[in-house]
Nucleic acid binder design. Structure first.
Lengths: 225, 225
DNA sequence: CCAATTCTTGACCGATCGGTCCACCATGAA
DNA sequence: TTCATGGTGGACCGATCGGTCAAGAATTGG
């Protein structure tokens, strides 16, 4: 039920969603909606927080479960082009859309956005550190700095998708950016850095064949309904 | 006058701006507003198109007037952190905000956004080509591809600013991304590519000292009132 | 089978929305 | 001074907004 409400806010935005829309997609009467969730703003915050928690969980799980952290980082950047049909790309991200619409007028939403993005940055930075230990990223880069760059890049790609860029072009751009920000093993082969750190403390299978496509389990918050 | 209206839409968004707001910021009565600009949507489109034209003109002028095109490309990526106080960063970009809010419901705005971003991409690609001729960028990269990557990155930085990232962190992230996507002359010195193309057909001062800060004239559409 | 209780519903509220329209006034020509 | 005129402002319109509430349906305990 909350998923239908989330989709409504996701598709139309906060201001453009009326109580009638919420009644229609939820199947509940106006009074029931109010009794169950409070007013429109509270309902929106509830849906948004659920989405943020799902998003955070998905990113954390993707990075934690990836055999090589750098692959999870790459798949994070490629998230906006995960849907081959491009419908997900056209919707954008609920948190990003809500932040853009409400950040300057709704301090609660703004605070939620800050918290969420700081959390994701921390998770990404942890992934960067693991990728450094695994020898897939240069140890000289600042993990938090790269994490912020990855997040900003992913948000930019998400926006370009929402702005209507066709999916093939978007995918090519995402691939190019991911490659430039996260040089893979084959790219690093002709690098000046040693191809592998001292010992491989974490990497479970150092000789696993590398692939440009994201090998990690696909976890999209839009599917968590 | 239109600038005040633009700022109102910019700060509050389309749906959250009422006719009373427009009357207040414009100083005009409701009837006068309607007689002069038509309904709210038409007024918004007028303001948006003015903004897009100003933006396009600013980017084109910045690239055309830069002694080295790569500097203009760099300053384009750094645009979101142009305001030291961070107030401009917090507002975001009117076109980006409007696209995020209305893209899925207003085909006119969506088409305007596509057109604008395609135009900016073309201008950036032209800048990339010039930077390649000037020897500041590797000739092997696809100009349009790099242009799209620069645009997506800039939009991502713009969004992170709107999402509340503090200006110093944002500036550091922007600097890092610009450096990775646009290796400057000092970065290229240890590159495998020849440090300068055959002859210097366009570059007026090949030995001019390079600077990390944007040397091009600052042209921000928010100042075009 | 009935009654107490919980839950749902849609009518209703004042406020405000975007849009229309007409009385009014400032101006300029006669 | 008078009249014609065009631009202005605000009253007014129906529609819709978010929110409230009492009546009735559904459920449960006895």
């Amino acid at each position: 039920m909350l998923c239908s409400v989330r989709d409504q806010f996701w598709n139309a935005g906060y201001a453009a969603t009326s109580l009638q829309d919420l009644m229609r997609v939820s199947g509940l009467g106006k009074g029931s909606l109010y009794a169950a969730f409070g007013d429109k703003h509270e309902l929106f915050l509830r849906v948004l927080r659920r989405y943020v928690a799902s998003l955070d969980h998905a990113v954390r799980g993707s990075i934690d479960s990836a055999p090589r952290a750098v692959d999870a980082l790459r798949s994070f950047v490629m998230l906006p082009v995960g849907d081959p049909a491009g419908r997900a790309a056209r919707r954008g991200c609920l948190l990003a859309n809500s932040t853009t619409e409400l950040a300057s007028a709704d301090p609660v939403v703004a605070a939620e956005a800050r918290r969420a993005y700081e959390g994701i940055t921390a998770v990404l930075a942890e992934g960067v550190r693991r990728a450094q230990v695994e020898g897939d990223l240069s140890a000289s880069v600042d993990p938090s700095g790269l994490a912020r760059a990855l997040l900003a890049t992913q948000q930019g790609l998400t926006f370009m998708g929402r702005a209507g860029m066709d999916v093939e072009t978007l995918a090519a751009t995402a691939h190019s950016l991911a490659t430039q920000l996260l040089p893979t093993a084959v790219d690093r082969r002709d690098s000046v850095d040693p191809p592998r750190g001292p010992g491989d403390p974490v990497a479970p299978a150092p000789g696993v064949p590398r692939s440009a496509t994201s090998p990690t389990g696909r976890t999209s918050p839009s599917a968590a309904s």
